[in-house]
Design a binder for these strands. Sequence first.
DNA 1: CAGTGGTCTAGACCACTGG
DNA 2: CAGTGGTCTAGACCACTGC
Lengths: 264, 264
Amino acid sequence: MAQTPASLPENAALAAAQAQVPATPAFSPLYQQIKALILQSLQAGEWKPGEAIPSEMDLAARFRVSQGTVRKAIDELAAENLVVRRQGKGTFVATHSEQHVQYRFLKLMPDAGDRADEGPAHRQIVECKRVRAAAEVARALALRPGDPVVQVRRVLSFGGVPAILEDLWLPGNAFKGLNAEQMDGWQGPTYAMFEMEFGVRMVRAEEKIRAVAADAAQSALLKVEIGSPLLSVERIAYTYNDVPMELRRGLYRTDTHHYRNDLS
Amino acid sequence: MAQTPASLPENAALAAAQAQVPATPAFSPLYQQIKALILQSLQAGEWKPGEAIPSEMDLAARFRVSQGTVRKAIDELAAENLVVRRQGKGTFVATHSEQHVQYRFLKLMPDAGDRADEGPAHRQIVECKRVRAAAEVARALALRPGDPVVQVRRVLSFGGVPAILEDLWLPGNAFKGLNAEQMDGWQGPTYAMFEMEFGVRMVRAEEKIRAVAADAAQSALLKVEIGSPLLSVERIAYTYNDVPMELRRGLYRTDTHHYRNDLS
DNA sequence: CAGTGGTCTAGACCACTGG
DNA sequence: CAGTGGTCTAGACCACTGC
């Protein structure tokens, strides 16, 4: 078949995409452009988390490309955990609600056994209030200092033993109406609640980890001695398009658990 | 073209591969079988780290499959960082020696700036001795207790400040002749030295991270006060085929550095 | 059974590298 | 310029799911 497909006149969507890069040709493969278009639909909420996206054939027809090209685009989205493929059923928008990928971002594991063994974490909300962003919080969330922010402090326990103390900061505009009951009452991952209640889907995060000594307030909440070593985990979580939507500072007890990481 | 390619009689290599799965058909795609064959050649050292492997066309001819099938096999190997593709040049066996992926497994970053800024780490070997594997070490390295093991203790410093104290345990059989001068004198990553001197290539690792308090010996070597919180990083590194080849226990100072992790 | 994703092929052309 | 990996297509068939 003939090539230079990006300039096929009958492909309106791609012609538009090409038009945006006039100076340097900035060669972008067709499948990358298709991927970007699908991504836009995901961001726009055209298909909700858990729902099926159109079949490869449908998308191929919509974008006037071959199934293989759509396939490669979806392959990359699947590799980034934005969609999930299920043979015989379809391709689905990824969600934090599914049982088998729940708590994907929580790397704290019990020293013995699996996390499934110790049952669900018990959550205790210490406080949940609306504040104005301090300089540091504003920087992390790409806000202006003083912008409204929701701050949550909570303690997570496994088998009755407190293991995690964490503070969350969320952009006030995106999380209007978030309250303690909501944080507390929800069954399952907090990020699943964010999807359902606020339409905010976390797709990626960066963590900075340090060892610190527990201060008075922290030791009381985690029931350890003052000065005990704790794992400090600072996380910035992002939605689509690398937009930061959460700053989280966690303190992990690592006497019975550890932070697990796979390198490759 | 006709399908059921795994049973094409003219494909000797694949026929052999199929023969190994008699009971359950255990359907395995052609490209997976090709991938396994290429992996075998990598393990066998048919191509050394840094060298080019045969072109996609050559491999397609060798295995009697289409280029696309070889391509998909190599795609997966590249995704696992076992090979590196370079357009216009070829596909190369991955190595820890290249500048831009050096220290891929070291996640400790300076709080400000890039790791490139602070220059190369200074290594000081505290000791390097041959010992018999304790129970715990034997378990991690899949050896029998009492088997010969090389134990190394060293301190890594950045800008003159000690930042990492680590103990390494290596299987004695694979690392015959390893000595302090070798550990100390080598320029660049230790894993690059393992490749060059012992033909051992680390492809994957698991880390368990905890916060601990420095004891007397540790505080002296890292020049911190006794009881200071330190990051404990226990790593098991694997070669091809998930064979463990190194146990490493690191203690990281995290007052000027942090352990960085990307979640997705 | 139809519909979905998954595999495989054959062939064409593009982008990049080096001699 | 030839050789490499990278993209794209069209079409066939396979494996899996659910009606």
